[in-house]
Design a protein around this nucleic acid. Structure first.
Lengths: 258, 258
DNA sequence: TAATAAATGTCGTTT
DNA sequence: AAACGACGTTTATTA
């Protein structure tokens, strides 16, 4: 007997919804519910969401999302690894999503359904994210003049006491250069992080040590701090790095943005 | 003429989907799409997602989510404030979500639809998040013995140079006590934050100043730092604070977790 | 397993 | 508008 792959129920009864969702759980399908519900969560914090109309997604990996008709973020959720239970009580359909190890419980109580849909979604495609911090690193190694003329990097990600240094090298005067890369406009935290690394090297090095913060921008508040610590800033955007790396960008970025 | 509030199309044609989604935009509805698509994003970073079956949510506030059948987080998204466009090209339906100011573009290219559903979701309900850091603050003010016997708090959120101090008071010996509250197990960052505040007060105060980090736990690495700085730690969980505040918990937490 | 840093972080608040 | 810190942050990486 062949089970129909997808199932879409418009305005289902409580019983129809129950059967569809329960089957969806046991068959590890992706479940989409639109309806009126209230939501309780207890775990690291606790929350209560009064009744309203929402979109709920239950995924085969055990993740769960409750989305209101606004905001990027779900109002309530569970990360992958949660277990689903469903029951009917007092004419409400209750979906319980819990992670036993973390002692976190999410309960969604429905009193009305606009839609219950069960899908066997197939998605094994690759996802490519370009121009991350690592990409910026690689771009600098490939084209050191992004930092300054004469820069000679000789190491990636050298481990020192407080953590990892993104790039180390020497300038044309043979001074040591310590580089901290950020892909976002950076603030005081990044400056302080760089300072820690530089100080660590100054202890061991007799030659001059320069610290350069490489990022697309520097927050105003951090500029004074940077200067007072004798550190330097070099503007470099992930987009520029992407360009250097000649990522397989069939379309030009400018075309795409139109 | 009354426009039907909700619309559910199962396996719609490209043209049917186009009309439904376009109307959904203009009527500021919540839009749910399940289908096969690929996704491109260019903005702060850039990404490419090859073809696969996904769930897409487009909300009236301009936020957009692309969800694969796994993971808590959307694979691609736009925060609220984005604008939607739709067009048909080469037998593909292309939904474009962009924020001009931030120069961020998300494009979803569909070649097949399992479901297109348009909802006028009503959700004005309140959302209550309990046992936050603020709640812990209030609990300490209400029951100072949570810190230690004889503690007398006299201020919440006093502004000092580096930021805000959660609670200030005096102990039974009339020493000043500076409290930093964290709702999670805390690390070195929290210890250093507390130290900054304590140092700020030591400059101005002639009497002894004690710094207490209040949190449900202290990371192992931070214990040495705390001790070396002469600071103290007091274990206190948000759950305990919730209890003190007698949050309207009709059900007992233990019942709920069952 | 625990700690640490990154994120297209997002989101609120304050300057 | 910019900056700063919190978040049920989540997630990946490394010790």
């Amino acid at each position: 007997m062949n089970v129909k792959t997808n199932l879409v129920l418009e305005n289902p009864s409580l019983g129809e919804a129950f059967n569809a969702i329960k089957n969806g759980f046991s068959e590890r399908k992706s479940i989409l519910i639109v309806g009126e519900c209230d939501v309780d969560y207890i775990g690291r914090a606790s929350s209560r969401l009064e009744s309203g109309e929402r979109i709920i997604i239950l995924k085969p990996d055990g993740s769960a999302l409750v989305h209101r008709p606004r905001d990027y973020a779900p109002v309530n959720w569970q990360p992958p690894g949660a277990l689903f239970r469903i029951r009917i009580k007092d004419n409400f359909l209750i979906v319980r999503v819990f992670r036993k190890k973390e002692n976190e419980v999410l309960e969604v109580k429905f009193n009305h359904f606009f839609l219950v849909a069960i899908f066997n979604l197939k998605d094994t495609a690759e996802f490519y994210l370009h121009a991350t911090e690592k990409d910026m690193q690689r771009a600098i190694m490939e084209k050191p003049s992004l930092i300054e003329e004469g820069f000679r990097p000789f190491s990636i990600e050298r481990s020192v006491d407080p953590g990892f240094i993104d790039v180390i090298g020497r300038d044309s005067q043979n001074n040591l250069i310590i580089i901290e890369i950020k892909r976002n406009i950076s603030g005081r935290d990044a400056v302080l992080q760089l300072q820690k690394y530089v100080n660590e090297f100054k202890k061991d090095s007799s030659s001059r040590v320069r610290g350069i913060l490489v990022a697309p921008g520097l927050a105003k508040g951090a500029q004074k701090l940077l200067a007072s610590l004798g550190l330097e800033f070099k503007a470099l955007s992930p987009e520029n790095c992407s360009f250097v790396l000649k990522k397989r960008d069939n379309k030009k970025i400018t075309d795409f943005l139109k």
